[in-house]
Design a protein around this nucleic acid. Structure first.
Length: 337
DNA sequence: AATGATATCAACCGCCGGCCT
DNA sequence: GAGGCCGGCGGTTGATATCAT
């Protein structure tokens, strides 16, 4: 496929994202802006273009990098004849034009990973992104700000509050894991076998990470590696191994997960609200009380308590949905103390 | 159909640290 | 060591699409 066609396709040719959201500035708007910049002219900065990239600019950048590779971005921008800052070129390349950049909605696996890593590292978007092959820090940042913070708002609590974090850990993440498992349950048995073997052996986790089971393995490794302060997912180096995350389409197949669906399910669950309230109540007590009433919500390292949940899920391997339900239901949370 | 609210995402901005002179 | 340049990072903004009324 020719590069122009690829760009046009990316610019709105069939992704889940609204066409204009990713499309380069229209010709009219672009020329209008250029006119404005001409009028502003004079300084060197005024010659620099800003705003959405055009297809021509994209092609120029792609072709130049294909021929010369990446380098010093300011020099690259000049050499390529782009009237852009080096920063702008770098951003465009890394966030959009790079061939391995993954488009489309986050899979349940990826969402799980984001939630988990963010709970440990906070807004270290670049660090988090380095563990989600093909995803950019910008994309993850946007996801967090739009989706996650929206849910916090719905719960009428701060995204950094313990209440929200508990709801995330014990309600949202299990739901995501459940859905991811359901998605992968329908994938090929051989792949599942490979994933399980990879997790058991610890080999090839990275290659197989974008799966619920692999995410579970990741959490387990988090526990194991916590003391050494090693990244649980630092072996993630390869891309697009997940059957539900492959390709550049919107990915809205049966294998993908919309976190809003998860959240809607949670909110529809009558138990949820009382659970969320109870979490706040129970975790507000002393450490001993927390352990007594709700051991997992006590002030333990994130990886420790979550790993318990996901580990059970992982050990279930290809267990039935009933098993998952048993693992994640609120009844069982209460039953644990 | 029109309009306002909300969601989404690409792109920009400012800051900071590393590197070079 | 000082100063400038550059790239990386996190926060923020603005344009557009979509939804609700």
């Amino acid at each position: 496929m020719e590069m122009v066609a690829v760009l046009q396709q990316r610019a709105g040719g069939g992704g889940a994202r609204p066409a204009a959201a990713t499309a380069p500035m229209t010709a009219a708007a672009s020329s209008a802006k250029q006119e404005q910049e001409k009028e502003e002219g004079g300084s060197a900065d005024a010659e620099l273009r800003r705003g959405p990239w055009t297809v021509d600019e994209d092609l120029t950048l792609i072709n130049y990098i294909a021929e010369h590779g990446e380098g010093r971005w300011n020099a690259l921008a000049r050499a390529a004849g782009l009237k852009r800052t080096g920063k702008s070129c770098r951003l465009r390349w890394l966030n959009y034009l790079r061939p391995d950049v993954k488009r489309g909605d986050f899979t349940a696996d990826e969402q799980l990973l984001i939630l988990d890593l963010h709970s440990r590292w906070g807004n270290r978007w670049s660090k988090i992104a380095s563990h989600l092959p093909g995803r950019t820090d910008n994309e993850i940042k946007n996801y967090w700000r739009t989706r996650v913070q929206k849910h916090a708002k719905q719960l009428n609590c701060d995204v950094n509050s313990k209440r929200f974090k508990d709801a995330m850990r014990f309600l949202w993440m299990p739901r995501l894991a459940e859905r991811a498992a359901a998605a992968h349950h329908s994938s090929s048995a051989s792949l599942q076998h490979q994933q399980q073997q990879a997790i058991i052996s610890g080999d090839g986790l990275g290659a197989l990470l974008p799966t619920a089971a692999a995410a579970a393995g990741c959490f387990e490794m988090a526990t194991a590696n916590a003391a050494a302060d090693r990244s649980p997912c630092s072996v993630v180096t390869t891309t697009n191994s997940s059957p539900c995350s492959s390709g550049t389409s919107s990915g809205s197949t049966a294998a993908t997960t919309n976190d809003d669906d998860c959240w809607a399910a949670i909110q529809q669950d009558h138990e949820f609200w009382s659970a969320a309230s109870n979490l706040q109540h129970l975790t507000a007590g002393s450490a001993d009380q927390q352990l007594l009433y709700f051991p997992l919500a006590a002030d333990l390292p994130m990886q420790a308590d979550l790993s318990g949940w996901v580990q059970g899920f992982s050990e279930g391997g290809s267990s039935s949905p009933e098993t998952h339900q048993q693992l994640w239901s609120l009844d069982d949370i209460w039953r644990m103390h």
